[in-house]
Amino acid sequence: MDYLLHILIVALIYGIFAISLNLELGYTGLYNFGHVAFFGIGAYTSALLGLSGLPVSLSMALGMAAAGVAGALLAIPALRLTGDFFGIATLVFAEMVRLFFVNERWLTKGPMGLPGIPRPSWIGEGIAGLPMFLIFCILLTVLVALTGRRLATSPFGRALKVVREDEYVAQTLGKNVLSLKIRAVILGSVLAGLAGCLWAHYISYISPSDFTLNETILVLLCVVLGGKGTNWGPVLGAFIIIFFQEALRFLPIPADFGRLVAPLQGMVYGFVLILIMLKRPEGIVSEYRGSRQC
């Protein structure tokens, strides 16, 4: 049973991560291919502060704040770029952040990573803390998802969708497009930071290799598989992906084929990504678009 709790927790964390990307990709139409950077910044900040003895809830809040600040720092200059150029800028940003984690050994302990990250004191370490951590994650996911839903129906959210569909229309309507986008990225970064904090304190060990392009692709897959621009689609996508990954553990794989599992998994992800784009770009849960279907 404990193992199921473990998977649920991981799936929920990725769910939050996916919601945060969806905010940018789904609602606002920003191609952020470096979203993992904010997950990583949140995780590292919170882990380092937690390890230095700060109460975990405080360090998590600071972790989210750090991710938000980083988001703002990236967004303000980079959002002047259009489309794919913004994508590349974010991709490169994520790589730079990762290289920073690898090379600044005095701070991050480099590739060795940070072991022994504490959990919030009221949750408890080890297995005894699993149910509490799950409840904590469920609460946060629901909170984040509800915020997302509230946002989608708010004037802000509707304005974001107009930006996604046509920037000029948004401008004509008197909306400050740049400011809207920046706010979307900051919010997305803060939430990605939250997911990162949860991950670090849950798994208790982080290293730079946890924050590579692969993670971005995984969460991108969660979003587009579940349905971008929807409230629950990304969470559903995260559950499917995480359960699929863990299910592989129970398959009896002969030792000779062990080497092949990871690449095969990667090929499946790549293939599914292409297939969704070709056949059902809206994902499993499709976005409600009034009477217009496209």
Binding site: L25, G29, Y31, F33, G83, D84, G87, I217, L220, V224, P263, L264, Q265, G266, M267, Y269, G270, F271, V272, L273, I274, M277, L278, P281
Partner: peptide
């Protein structure tokens, strides 16, 4: 456009893992 970009990321991931 976003569909195209995500698809190209998919292609890249598929080919690399092959």
């Amino acid at each position: 456009r976003i569909t195209l970009l995500i698809a190209s990321i998919g292609v890249s991931y598929l080919l690399r893992n092959t």
